[in-house]
């Protein structure tokens, strides 16, 4: 038997029951595990945002090994987006071994984030993505960006030491 010490931090506090009180608390709490949020105005492609959301949920322990995800049709229906977008995100994660499809065609979480390439590099790639995109749209060239980055790396490493 294990005690879920993070339960309160995960979905405590913020869950207030509104309108009518006929919603069972555990319903809300169970459903509250993995919320996925996409910004349709974000310049990053939607499938990248989905990949990032899922990675973050695994990172924060909101989704654990063996937890299943909704089918791409179901998820796209809830979000009101194209199911190919969700499919593409799932394919990336399956390719990297974070998700897997089991016998019953269920998509489940196969591995922790630390054991996968996307987990190690991809998270950071995605964090930097937005910034680089902004720099490109602000008119920076590839060499400009590289210069800024390498000088920053120098500065940060110096400060760190």
């Amino acid at each position: 038997m294990s005690i879920d010490v993070n339960a309160k931090e995960r979905h405590g506090g913020e869950m207030k029951l509104g309108y009518h009180n006929d919603v069972k608390n555990h319903d809300v709490e169970n459903a509250g595990r993995g919320v996925i949020t996409l910004d349709l105005n974000d310049p990053r492609p939607l499938y990248m945002q989905i990949v990032e959301s899922i990675l973050r949920l695994i990172e924060n322990n909101r989704m654990k090994l063996g937890d299943s995800l909704p089918s791409s049709r179901k998820l796209s229906g809830e979000l009101g987006i194209n199911y190919h977008t969700v499919n593409r995100a799932y394919e990336i994660l399956i390719h990297d071994g974070i998700l897997q499809i089991d016998r019953k065609k269920r998509i489940t979480i196969a591995r922790g984030i630390s054991e996968s390439a996307i987990g190690r590099i991809g998270m950071w790639k995605m964090k930097i993505w937005g910034m680089i995109e902004e720099m490109i749209s602000a008119g920076f060239s590839k060499t400009d960006i590289l210069m800024v980055l390498s000088s920053l790396i120098g500065d940060v490493a110096e400060g760190y030491n």
Binding site: R33, N41, L79
Partner: peptide, 14 residues
């Protein structure tokens, strides 16, 4: 603020 366009759902099956 700027017009928002956020969509969100939970991955847990209901």
């Amino acid at each position: 603020g700027t017009p928002n366009d956020i969509v969100a759902t939970t991955l847990t099956d209901v």
